[in-house]
Lab assay of single mutants.
Amino acid sequence: MSRVPSPPPPAEMSSGPVAESWCYTQIKVVKFSYMWTINNFSFCREEMGEVIKSSTFSSGANDKLKWCLRVNPKGLDEESKDYLSLYLLLVSCPKSEVRAKFKFSILNAKGEETKAMESQRAYRFVQGKDWGFKKFIRRDFLLDEANGLLPDDKLTLFCEVSVVQDSVNISGQNTMNMVKVPECRLADELGGLWENSRFTDCCLCVAGQEFQAHKAILAARSPVFSAMFEHEMEESKKNRVEINDVEPEVFKEMMCFIYTGKAPNLDKMADDLLAAADKYALERLKVMCEDALCSNLSVENAAEILILADLHSADQLKTQAVDFINYHASDVLETSGWKSMVVSHPHLVAEAYRSLASAQCPFLGPPRKRLKQS
């Protein structure tokens, strides 16, 4: 649940008159999402009104509101027999009622949201009550392989729920002597030191190019640089560091992050930047690179990204790559990247197969709970 924001200063709310007192009302909304995959969808019983329910879910471990999704594969009634019906059901509720908006969509073979439908307002739910769409999607369109909505005969539904909580009022009075504290510009100011090479005390040599930097900042941000300058190493004695395995453009992006906490060109060089972040123990930059690479996972590059993640101990990226390969196994196994990995990294192939087997055979063990970014 997000923290209630402070109200904007009255002088910034309007260029008009300023009242002596004010009130700011925040209506709290808890948002969460749920993904439900139905394997072997074409084998569902086709009687009209037949119901399939998901397991229950909530916004978190401490949330007492429990929900589930309900599907009628062949419609709810005679009117909707040519459609799939989809509903959000409130299973248990400690209150007399709650209000919530919802959005349903289908994830296609690429994991993209399609055929989205959402409620136009927050509906009133009581325990045992459901709301949804009797005519969510035509069955003939859903079952047509050309539309790519049932890869490997799996129907994957994605649901986003927004639950309306209580409202909170914050009130106060205006004073004539309003003090406005300026925003912190530390990142910009440190970035200026790097860009202008002011007050530098060490030189970093990268592929024949020299960059002036500040030992204190490098040591504070990177345990690797800290070790170089702290001990009686040649880098500490000469205040000069030779860097041979990072390209200059990648190095500059890494230094921008060290000084400012930002990497504006990360998406263009996420793979190389991940390697640099791993070498210099820049954990936050490493996770930022993992996130960017996750966003660009595809059938063509899944094997290469899995190898990269394994090489640099990028655990979150590795998990996402394995899950992606499992979901698109029939396509990924035909790529040149996968065939190369079979020869060069057989242990990763074995890991992917083990994960695929456990996903398809849940009876082999208890269900695993899916539970950071600093």
Rank of each mutant, 00 (worst) to 15 (best):
M1E: 00
M1S: 00
M1A: 00
S2M: 13
R3W: 08
V4N: 12
P5A: 10
P7R: 10
P8V: 05
P8Y: 13
P10E: 03
A11W: 04
A11Y: 01
E12P: 08
E12A: 04
E12W: 06
M13N: 03
S15Y: 12
P17F: 03
W22D: 00
W22I: 02
Y24L: 14
Y24H: 09
I27F: 03
I27W: 11
K28V: 10
V29M: 03
S33V: 08
S33R: 12
Y34C: 05
T37K: 02
I38N: 04
N40E: 03
N40H: 05
F41E: 11
F41T: 05
S42G: 03
S42K: 03
S42F: 04
C44T: 14
C44N: 03
R45V: 12
R45K: 07
R45P: 08
G49K: 02
S55T: 04
T56Q: 07
S58G: 09
A61W: 07
A61S: 12
K64G: 10
K64S: 10
L65P: 09
L65K: 11
K66G: 09
W67T: 01
W67Q: 00
W67C: 06
C68Y: 11
L69F: 08
R70F: 14
R70N: 13
R70P: 01
N72K: 04
N72S: 04
P73D: 14
K74C: 13
K74F: 12
G75A: 14
G75V: 10
D77R: 06
E79V: 03
Y83A: 13
L84Y: 09
L84D: 14
L84M: 09
S85T: 13
L86Q: 14
Y87V: 00
Y87R: 00
Y87G: 01
C93N: 07
C93T: 06
S96W: 15
S96N: 10
K103E: 12
K103F: 11
S105W: 10
I106T: 12
I106Q: 03
L107M: 14
N108R: 14
N108T: 03
A109E: 04
E112K: 13
T114H: 05
K115M: 04
K115S: 09
R124H: 15
R124Y: 15
V126G: 12
V126S: 15
V126T: 12
V126H: 07
Q127E: 08
G132Y: 00
F133M: 07
K135D: 03
K135Q: 13
K135C: 13
F136R: 02
R138Q: 15
R139G: 06
D140V: 06
D144Q: 03
E145T: 08
A146H: 04
N147A: 09
G148C: 06
L149F: 04
P151I: 01
P151C: 10
P151T: 08
D152T: 00
D152C: 12
L155P: 03
L157V: 15
F158A: 06
C159M: 03
E160T: 12
E160K: 08
E160C: 08
V161H: 07
S162Y: 05
V163I: 08
V163A: 02
V164G: 06
D166Y: 14
S167G: 07
N169L: 03
I170F: 01
I170S: 02
S171F: 03
G172W: 05
Q173K: 04
N174V: 03
M178N: 05
M178C: 07
K180R: 03
V181A: 06
E183R: 06
R185F: 06
L186K: 06
A187S: 04
A187Q: 07
D188S: 07
E189V: 05
L190W: 05
G191K: 03
L193A: 07
W194R: 06
W194F: 03
S197F: 14
R198K: 14
F199K: 14
T200E: 12
D201V: 01
C202F: 08
C202Q: 14
C202R: 14
C202V: 13
C203E: 13
V206P: 09
A207C: 11
E210P: 09
Q212T: 15
Q212M: 15
A213C: 12
H214P: 02
H214C: 14
I217N: 04
L218F: 05
A220H: 02
R221K: 14
R221Y: 15
P223V: 14
V224G: 09
F225K: 00
F225R: 00
M228P: 15
F229N: 14
F229A: 11
F229D: 14
F229C: 14
H231T: 15
M233C: 15
E235K: 02
N239L: 04
E247C: 05
E247P: 06
F251K: 00
M254F: 04
F257M: 05
F257V: 05
I258M: 12
T260L: 06
T260R: 03
G261V: 05
K262M: 02
K262D: 03
P264W: 06
N265V: 13
M269N: 02
M269E: 01
A270R: 02
D272N: 04
A276G: 01
K279T: 02
K279N: 02
E283S: 06
K286C: 06
M288C: 12
C289D: 00
C294G: 15
C294E: 09
S295D: 15
L297W: 03
S298V: 12
N301C: 06
A303G: 10
E304W: 13
L306E: 00
I307T: 08
A309C: 07
D310N: 07
S313M: 13
A314M: 13
A314W: 13
D315A: 06
Q316E: 11
Q316H: 06
A321G: 03
A321H: 00
V322N: 11
V322Q: 13
D323E: 11
F324P: 00
N326C: 11
Y327C: 04
H328F: 11
A329V: 09
V332M: 07
V332R: 00
V332C: 13
T335I: 00
G337V: 07
K339N: 11
M341S: 02
V342L: 08
P346C: 08
P346A: 03
P346W: 07
H347Q: 03
V349E: 06
V349W: 14
A350M: 09
A350E: 10
E351A: 06
E351F: 11
A352V: 04
Y353L: 14
R354C: 06
S358L: 04
A359M: 10
P362K: 15
F363V: 13
R368S: 15
R368T: 14
R370V: 13
R370A: 08
R370I: 10
L371H: 13
K372I: 04
K372S: 05
Q373E: 13
